[in-house]
């Protein structure tokens, strides 16, 4: 029994799920109504935004060779801005706006991917540089003044309840989750990501197109950031400058809490989804408790450290 519990506790998805339930319970005790359906729906919506960014981050990290994408937040901001300005509150403009924004974000991600594979620039360096370029482009486009508004149709798709009071964005997230699970388990591309992440040399010898696979994970990370930008626009209605910055590091943390190893080749998206829900819930519980901002930050940091005690630690060095 104890041994079985130990095995279960070694699984990040189990730990993350238990942590989520524990947070809900603690929240409900401290502030009745925290675990009410309405609150949970709000949290799921916010988690969906983080979760979609983290989907791309997850692919990049799975691909290994210290894969990481620091440019996601800036691409979210840029996409939300572009989408808002291309739509201008007009439903007729929406299809074109969505296609243009997704193409743009895909290409930005692809550029990072090409830098990482062809020029063999470390991902952290490449995406750090890309972050500066995208933010610079955003300043140029916005001139520091936010503008652009969502098409009414987009706001409806994102926010209107579809089923069980859950709004559209949650179903979009679930659909992305399902698609990624299929992609990672059932397609050659997905299996190749695990292969290059686990052992690049072996994957190359087995005929996996290593550079193309890795470059594509970065392009998809850009694409998912673009999707998030559009969803964020639909959720908030208009865009504020730097709206995406809040996703950069939390997207990495959601992936790690979800049990994907930063070394690559190990993990999956289901855990990441749980990780995103956990992060959002933790933040929300701290907000509900009326703790001042400094206290929220301290508790947030300490809770993350405590959670990391369960997994994600490096192996002990052996002689």
């Amino acid at each position: 029994m104890l041994a079985r519990a130990k095995v279960l506790l070694a699984r990040p998805l189990v730990v993350a799920s238990i942590a989520i339930l524990a947070l809900l319970a603690v929240g409900e005790v401290l502030s009745p109504g925290f675990a009410s359906p309405r609150q949970i729906v709000t949290q799921l919506v916010i988690a969906a935004l983080l979760g979609v960014v983290a989907a791309g981050q997850n692919l990049v990290i799975l691909g290994g060779r210290e894969g990481i994408d620091l440019s996601v937040g800036s691409i979210v901001s840029l996409s939300a801005f572009l989408a808002g300005n291309l739509m201008q509150q007009n439903d007729a403009n929406m299809p074109l706006a969505v296609v243009a924004v997704l193409a743009c974000s895909f290409l930005i991600g692809l550029a990072s991917g090409i830098g990482v594979t062809m020029l063999r620039i470390p991902p952290l360096v490449m995406t750090l540089g890309m972050l500066g370029v995208v933010n610079g482009a955003l300043v140029l486009l916005t001139r520091g003044v936010p503008s652009g508004r969502a098409a009414p149709l987009l706001s409806q798709i994102v926010s209107r309840p579809v089923l069980f009071d859950l709004p559209g964005i949650v179903f979009i997230w679930i659909a992305i989750g399902g698609a990624l699970a299929l992609l990672l388990r059932r397609t050659t591309f997905g299996i190749n990501i695990y292969a290059i992440g686990a052992n690049e040399a072996a994957a190359a010898l087995a005929g996996v197109p290593v550079p193309r696979t890795r470059a594509l994970t970065f392009a998809l990370s850009g694409l998912f950031s673009g999707v998030t930008g559009i969803l964020l626009l639909g959720y908030t209605g208009n865009v504020f400058v730097g709206a995406g910055d809040q996703y950069m590091l939390p997207s990495i943390i959601a992936v790690v809490i979800g049990g994907t190893s930063l070394a690559g080749g190990n993990g999956g998206y289901t855990g990441t989804m749980a990780g995103a829900v956990f992060l959002v819930e933790l933040q929300s519980i701290l907000t509900t408790l009326n703790i001042p901002a400094f206290g929220r930050q301290i508790v947030f940091g300490v809770t993350l450290l405590a959670l990391m005690l369960f997994y994600g630690r490096q192996r002990r060095l052996k002689s």
Partner: peptide, 18 residues
């Protein structure tokens, strides 16, 4: 404690900011 550097220093950074 053999924590991963990126995650750890992100978390401590949030706490230090607090």
């Amino acid at each position: 404690l053999r924590y991963q550097a990126i995650v750890t220093t992100f978390a401590t950074g949030v706490a230090f900011s607090g």
